[in-house]
Design a binder for these strands. Structure first.
Lengths: 113, 113
DNA sequence: ATTATATTCAACCACATGGTTAACAATCAC
DNA sequence: GTGATTGTTAACCATGTGGTTGAATATAAT
């Protein structure tokens, strides 16, 4: 039965399901960028990029500051931390399951030395 | 552009963008369940639930074992670890700690490719 | 052999998504 | 003011998504 703020996660995960949007997030992790900055690497219209940015904004993954005619976008850490929180529930589970694999990798590493 | 294995993440994030599917993942974190088990909490046809399960499967978030006429689904830890790996790049935004396990997982993932 | 159970598949539908182009709005530079 | 720059909005299109129902498949039970 779905949890309390699942509607948020819907938007967050949906936003992140597109490679263009993930790449934009990555760019914003370096520093703030304008809409055209974000759009420039992609072979698509500015309107299309603008839509992507709006999806990220609606998911609260980024924030926008309008200064003059330029819109400056920056990452909103809280957006991604929502994913982290969601994931943390499962983290124990899969870290446990991968324990054996870690050991294997460690052994392999020791052999190299 | 994006990165190499983005297509994986497309599927993973898309799969997780639906509340029904996230709830299914949550159920599977407890223990394995059959398709009807997974479907039963929801007010939708079995066929619809079956589709959801297939989306999770294609994203490699779960695995299926057919035994007789029942299909037993279990969580695939590696699926979620992909999300964690992706997320770990951004973790510095809300925490300073760097988990050693992340590094191990990253290495494991690199070796596979 | 018949019937019930577990699940998928195929066809269909309404709506969402990601892209386009063209028009609009606001700001800056001259 | 005129014109260029930055960005959004609107209308449109092809494809994808999540749901339905009904038929098909495979196995289990009697």
């Amino acid at each position: 039965m779905v949890n309390n703020h699942s509607y948020d996660l819907d938007a967050v995960f949906h936003a992140l399901s597109d490679p263009t949007r993930r790449a934009m997030v990555r760019q914003l992790a370096e520093h703030e960028r304008t809409v055209s900055d974000l759009a420039s690497p992609y072979d698509m219209s500015l309107a299309a990029a603008s839509k992507h940015i709006r999806v990220l904004e609606r998911a609260k993954l980024i924030e926008r500051t309008v200064r003059g005619r330029t819109h400056i976008c920056k990452l909103n850490p809280k957006g991604l931390s929502r994913v982290h929180k969601w994931l943390s529930y499962y983290e124990r589970f899969w870290t446990q399951k991968l324990d054996a694999l870690e050991t294997l990798l460690a052994e392999e590493d020791n052999k190299k030395k």
